[in-house]
């Protein structure tokens, strides 16, 4: 916030408050963040493809492993690429993200849950087909 304070001083009557930001001058720190993100994302992607290719894993565990790896990778993307952090200026972003996750979980989880039970309670297809006029 101190750089904002400076701006409202003597030299900046031509810009509206909060327009200018101090440019981030550290190339090294910026590139390092993206490199870490890329490395972790590549590892998690490789793990996802590996989990499907290998036959060392108990098959029913594979979908769960894939979901866990995907969620981890989405987290990596959010932190290292989208820069969603816990900093005070990010509070609103975090709250919006939390709301988005809630809606996505309701839509996806709700649909899958309801339709699964609907399928379970349907008459099996081989009994339905002969009943239809052909």
């Amino acid at each position: 916030m101190s750089e904002n304070g400076e701006e409202f001083g003597l030299n900046s009557h031509d810009v509206a408050p909060g327009v200018m930001d101090a440019p981030e001058h550290s190339i090294r720190a910026g590139v390092q963040g993206y490199l870490i993100g890329l490395g972790l994302a590549v590892l998690l992607t490789a793990a996802s493809f590996g989990v499907v290719q290998t036959n060392q894993i108990w098959p029913p565990a594979i979908p769960i492993a894939l979901v866990v790896l995907a969620v981890a990778q989405i987290g990596i993307h959010l932190v290292f690429f989208l820069h969603i952090t816990t900093a005070p200026d990010n509070t609103n972003n975090i709250l919006a993200l939390a709301f988005g996750i809630l809606i996505v979980a309701l839509v996806v989880g709700g649909s899958v849950w309801i339709m699964y039970h609907l399928n379970e309670n349907m008459m099996p297809m081989h009994q339905v087909i002969p009943a239809q006029p052909s």
């Binding site: 200026d89 809606i103 839509v107 996806v108």
Partner: peptide, 28 residues
């Protein structure tokens, strides 16, 4: 007052989340 950059990013992030919600419907 938050800097304009933070506000712009927040507004666009809201749009992106709405886009993600739309994708979640296709996903479901």
């Amino acid at each position: 007052p938050a800097s304009r950059r933070v506000i712009t990013g927040f507004g666009f992030w809201i749009f992106l989340l709405s886009d993600i919600v739309m994708f979640s419907c296709f996903f479901a």
